[in-house]
């Protein structure tokens, strides 16, 4: 369905970079079985320079996805396990006094990595959470009065377990807004689950995987993705969707202008991965639930089982111009 264009016709992205992206996508697909759509969305999020929140039950491969992204894309990777006694310094790092030199030396924390996995982000206290969220927003951290830039690209994958309620600090809406997308992985299908059971251990597979891209290629891809053409008709469509979230009686809090920007950026990245010559309506629809789902607040009386169902309802009530 997404065919029809040959690589030569595409305006953006050199073919070597394109090929690296396709190889990375394929490699991820071999590790995380049957989740091509989620992989595509996670890559879109990365190409749109956004951060990713994966929300699902334990054991569905959240951590593996984050780690695999880092390995395949050739990014430096650190994992922070969020617990209730996690301190901001555990994230950003500390200055240690060195006796030999008689000076303070900064010991960078795990946040100084190109891909940071914040595991079970809702288990930590708001203080620790905000240290991370600040780093995500500013792409720099300030320790002891010195501002230090974080690496570029800088990509945070946070996971949280929606079933856990006791002893957690759910992220407030304003902080959820920092994540470009919220992704759910879901259970694999029977066939894929069988292969997971019988096949190799996924962590062991990660040891063997080689990097398909480099940070430089990723930056170039990000730049190219932001240049994807967006027609007036499509801007109209995005605006119509946003308007619907604000006007629908089922929704209390609609999309903010920042939400609309996020939608446009994610749709561009998605169109880039799909090699579309411009952003198509199905690009917007594909990213809509993950971009808008965590930004909308359903009205009290509305009965939707999930945010994605609510988002689908919005899509189904707006004409495509």
């Amino acid at each position: 369905m997404q065919g029809g264009n040959t690589l030569e016709e595409l305006p953006l992205g050199k073919s070597t970079e394109r090929a690296a992206l396709a190889a990375a996508q394929a490699a991820l697909g071999r590790i995380i079985l049957g989740k091509d759509e989620q992989i595509e969305l996670a890559l879109s999020c990365l190409l749109a320079r956004g951060h990713l929140l994966i929300e699902d039950l334990p054991g569905l491969g959240k951590t593996v996805l984050a780690h695999a992204l880092a390995v395949v894309l050739g990014l430096s990777y650190r994992r922070i396990q969020f617990t209730s006694d996690l301190l901001p310094a555990d994230i950003v790092g500390v200055s240690i006094f060195r006796k030999e030199s008689g000076e303070f030396e900064f010991q960078p924390g795990p946040v100084f990595s190109q891909l940071v996995l914040a595991d079970e982000v809702n288990r930590a206290t708001p203080k620790a959470q905000s240290a991370l969220l600040e780093a995500m927003e500013e792409r720099q951290v300030t320790v002891d009065g010195t501002t230090r830039a974080l690496p570029n690209p800088f990509f945070v994958v946070a996971t949280q377990n929606p079933a856990d309620q006791i002893g957690t600090f759910p992220l407030p809406e304003s902080q959820l807004d920092r994540f470009l997308m919220r992704l759910e992985l879901g259970y694999p299908n029977e066939e894929n689950e069988r292969e997971l059971i019988t096949g190799k251990d996924r962590r062991a597979m990660l040891e063997e995987v080689v990097a398909e891209t480099s940070p430089e290629i990723l930056l170039a891809l990000q730049e190219a993705a932001s240049q994807v053409h967006m027609s007036d008709a499509l801007v109209d469509y995005i605006q119509a969707l946003v308007r619907q979230t604000r006007e629908s009686p089922d929704i209390d809090i609609g999309l903010s202008p920042r939400g609309a920007q996020a939608l446009a950026a994610a749709a561009k990245a998605h169109a880039f991965i799909r090699k579309h010559s411009g952003v198509f309506p199905d690009d917007v629809q594909a990213v809509f639930a993950t971009v808008a789902g965590h930004r909308l607040k359903a009205a009290g009386g509305a009965h939707y089982r999930s945010a994605s169902e609510l988002c689908q309802h919005v899509i189904d009530s707006v004409d495509i111009p």
Binding site: V228, S277, G278
Partner: peptide, 15 residues
Amino acid sequence: LDITNSYQEARYGGV
């Protein structure tokens, strides 16, 4: 498929 592609190119594409 062909017509859909042409339409998407014409309406939303930039090239």
